[in-house]
Simulated assay, not measured.
Amino acid sequence: MSERTESPERMDGPTMPAKPATIYDVAQAAGVSHQTVSRFLKGFQGIRPETRERVVQALDELGYRPNLTARSLKSGRSHRIGALTHEISHVGPSRIVEGASAAAREAGYVLDIVSLDARNPRAIEESLGIITQHDLAGVLALASTDEMTAAFETAEFRVPAYVAVEADDAVDDPRSRLSRIGLPALVDHLAGLGHRRFVHIAGPANWSASRNRLRAYEATVTEHGLQSVAVLHGDWSARSGYHAIADLAELPDATAFIAANDQMALGAMLALKERGRRTPDDVSVVGIDDIPEAEFFDPPLTTLRNDFESQGRAAVAELLSRIERTEPRRLVTPLPQLIVRRSSGPAPTR
Rank of each mutant, 00 (worst) to 15 (best):
R95I: 06
E218D: 11
P204M: 11
I258G: 00
S208M: 13
T132V: 15
K273A: 05
A141F: 11
V229G: 05
L142Q: 02
R305F: 08
G182A: 08
F44P: 00
P280C: 09
E218Q: 14
G108P: 01
D307R: 11
G267H: 00
G287L: 13
T349K: 09
A271M: 08
A230P: 03
Q57G: 14
P93K: 13
V171K: 14
V32I: 12
K273Q: 07
A103Y: 04
M269N: 05
A230M: 13
L140I: 11
T303R: 04
S210G: 13
G276P: 02
S38D: 06
P328F: 10
S72I: 10
I323V: 09
L68N: 02
I258F: 12
F198Y: 14
Q57I: 12
F44S: 02
E87W: 08
D172E: 14
V56W: 00
A256W: 02
S344W: 11
G234I: 12
A260N: 12
V332D: 10
R95T: 03
F152C: 02
L248R: 08
R71I: 07
D12Y: 11
P160N: 07
D112P: 06
Y24V: 13
L193S: 04
E218M: 13
T85M: 10
N261Y: 02
T302E: 01
L62V: 09
Y217G: 03
L270I: 13
D117M: 11
R277D: 02
S210R: 12
A170I: 08
I288H: 10
L136H: 06
R322G: 09
V163A: 01
V32R: 03
D298E: 03
M148V: 08
G138M: 11
R52C: 07
Y217K: 04
E293M: 15
R197F: 04
L248F: 10
A102F: 07
L116D: 03
H233L: 09
Y242N: 00
H224I: 01
V97W: 09
D298N: 02
Q227V: 14
L266W: 09
V91K: 06
S33N: 12
F44L: 09
I323F: 10
S115A: 15
L270T: 14
H200V: 10
S208T: 15
L338K: 08
A143W: 01
D168V: 10
G129V: 10
G82H: 03
I288M: 05
S75H: 14
A164L: 02
D173G: 12
E147M: 07
R71G: 01
A83M: 15
L214C: 02
E50V: 12
L111N: 01
N261L: 08
A30K: 03
Q311F: 05
A155M: 06
R330Y: 05
D172V: 08
R39W: 09
F44K: 10
R158S: 15
E293P: 00
A202F: 13
Q45R: 15
L140S: 04
G192V: 11
H233N: 14
L226H: 04
Y24F: 11
A30T: 08
Q28R: 15
G194R: 15
I130E: 07
R77E: 08
A102D: 05
R77W: 08
A150E: 06
H224G: 01
H34F: 09
E98D: 15
V32Y: 02
T145N: 04
V91Y: 13
Q133M: 14
